[in-house]
Design a protein around this nucleic acid. Structure first.
Lengths: 322, 322
DNA sequence: CTGAAAGCGCTTACAG
DNA sequence: CTGAAAGCGCTTACAG
């Protein structure tokens, strides 16, 4: 049997017409020999690598792990394999950048990098490789898949307002992260919806880290007529905020309530257990992969905001003000 | 200029002899055209993909994120790119397995999967693809790079013994994880070194999770003549153990001391802050990559245990027994 | 010192 | 229905 027929049979080419017997022989031989096509040879010929690149920031937080896992699984189910690149190096236009963008190693890129406006991101648009921004909106710059962070944060605010809190402060993320800006918007709209208008001193920007939350909460809780509740923009900063309250001799939730953003197993085991907004992170990663695969296939795609509603997980870190 | 010379100049082929002027022209043209060789074409010809596969388990824990990050950076600096595969799917011999093992997509594999004796792992040895086991020893099965988990755990035990504890219990990991077995061995040797011999009821196996630690600690702390200190085999189980103590009305560290294994930013912000053993995880990942690259290059390699000593980070979760 | 040729392992028009 | 041929973009002996 010639290699042409073999290739077509093995690839289920619908245009092939082959005698059932020949097909059987090919299939049997392939099985007997454990034949698996060489991905690089195939990639060279078809100009499809069946590989997706994932550029992502700090892995130390469970949130990003959810994204990797969701993306990896969805990619696998679409026949793709996932290449991972560190955002820091990528964004500095290092080797990872060159390798993913120009060596034709990937058919498309998922960019989950958190900060905004880097030169690299701009390069992308003047360049034919399809890409999708994950958890990150940047109008005018290609397709993005993101969550309704605003609704999530507003939900946390409403929960606290319903408990009777009025002086609700916000530990926001870093201003260069668009997720931080959208969570801040959610804080504002949540306050407004509850008839509250926060003083600007009630909003403090901080990195998405324990340390960031600690420092921000310390300054917030040291202020005169301090807040009775802190809505934070990440899980890590909520942990830091609770630690800061304790360090000041304040009890959570008796003296001050704290909410986090995103959920992870540890939230339930903290002291007190953390009330937090659970966002559909895995779904976001899956949709991002599907969107990218569509783009690669030539589909026109639009931005998508994951419609699945955020869920507020109420635990011990929030209570009525005393 | 012919493509042969071009290729050799661009690849710095030492055997090429070329007029300086020609070389200049080639270099200038490459620069002007932003030329980057097609990785797949090169891979097809050279039979080197310059890609490494990383098979790893549950990403939800910061520990594994350290491994990815260390591996990714080291791979990048060696000119490699990192493909990621989910251990669950891989170990069940799913598509990821086929793709990484047989499609010649990678030059070698880093296996950081935690459990032991899977069929897939055995397949590997009857198969020419170089691989390195990361954080996981399996005698007779290829090269592994691991940490001195035993010393780390013994260190935690000695710290508690020095504080005056005698009834030190161990929340071990799952018995099918060799890291768990080595930490258990460290617990035993640490106890012996301090003249203590624990009753077998002082050792409880549990998954490496908050929940696992919670359940194990609950049973341990409900027992008669309960332990005054718990040495756990992971960060997550320490968090769970502290929660269990609280749930029983016991204070950490006044009634019971707790130690974790591995460090992450959150440990410092827990209540109380967690005493834990910091292991050189990133170094392990880097050495694993270097070892794998050596193997790919045909070097004979031996198992390596990272020599860098574990460090005990003493925080508020341990104190003298009251 | 430089270039033409072969070939890596596939897929895909195309001819028989 | 089946197979021979070209070609994807490189690298590497080899010939000039």
């Amino acid at each position: 049997v010639g290699s042409s027929v073999t290739s077509r049979v093995l690839n289920d080419d619908p245009t092939v017409s082959v005698r059932p017997e020949t097909r059987e022989r090919i299939l049997a031989a392939a099985l007997a020999l454990d034949y698996t096509p060489d991905a690089f040879a195939r990639g060279l010929k078809t100009a499809r690598t069946m590989t997706l690149g994932l550029v992502l920031p700090n892995l130390a937080y469970a949130v990003n792990a959810e994204i990797i896992r969701g993306a990896e699984r969805q990619a696998a189910s679409k026949g793709y394999v996932l290449l991972i690149a560190d955002a820091d190096e990528f964004v500095q236009a290092g080797d990872a950048y060159r390798r993913l963008l120009f060596e034709r190693r990937v058919d498309g890129l998922l960019i989950a990098s958190a900060t905004t406006g880097s030169r690299v991101i701009k390069d992308l648009s003047s360049q034919p490789l399809p890409f999708v921004l994950v958890n990150r909106r940047q109008p005018g710059l290609g397709v993005n898949v993101s969550l309704d962070d605003e609704a999530g944060t507003a939900m946390a605010v409403s929960h606290l307002a319903a408990l009777g809190h009025r002086r609700i402060a916000h530990i926001a993320g870093p201003p260069d992260a668009d997720t931080a800006r959208r969570r801040l918007a959610g804080y504002r709209s949540g306050m407004a919806a509850n008839g509250l208008r926060p003083a600007s001193s009630m909003i403090v920007a901080a990195p998405f880290s324990e340390r960031g939350g600690f420092d921000a909460a310390t300054s917030l809780l040291n202020a005169p007529s301090r807040a009775t509740a802190l809505v934070t923009a990440s899980l890590a900063s909520a942990v830091g905020a609770m630690a800061a309250a304790r360090a000041l001799g304040l009890s959570v939730p008796n003296d001050v309530s704290v909410t986090g953003f995103h959920d992870a197993p540890i939230a339930e085991y903290l002291h007190p257990a953390l009330t937090t907004v659970r966002m559909p992170l895995r779904e976001m990663a899956e949709v991002a992969v599907r969107t990218l695969v569509g783009l690669i296939g030539g589909e026109a795609s639009r931005d998508v905001t994951i419609a699945t509603a955020p869920v507020l997980i109420t635990r011990g870190s929030t209570a009525a003000p005393s």
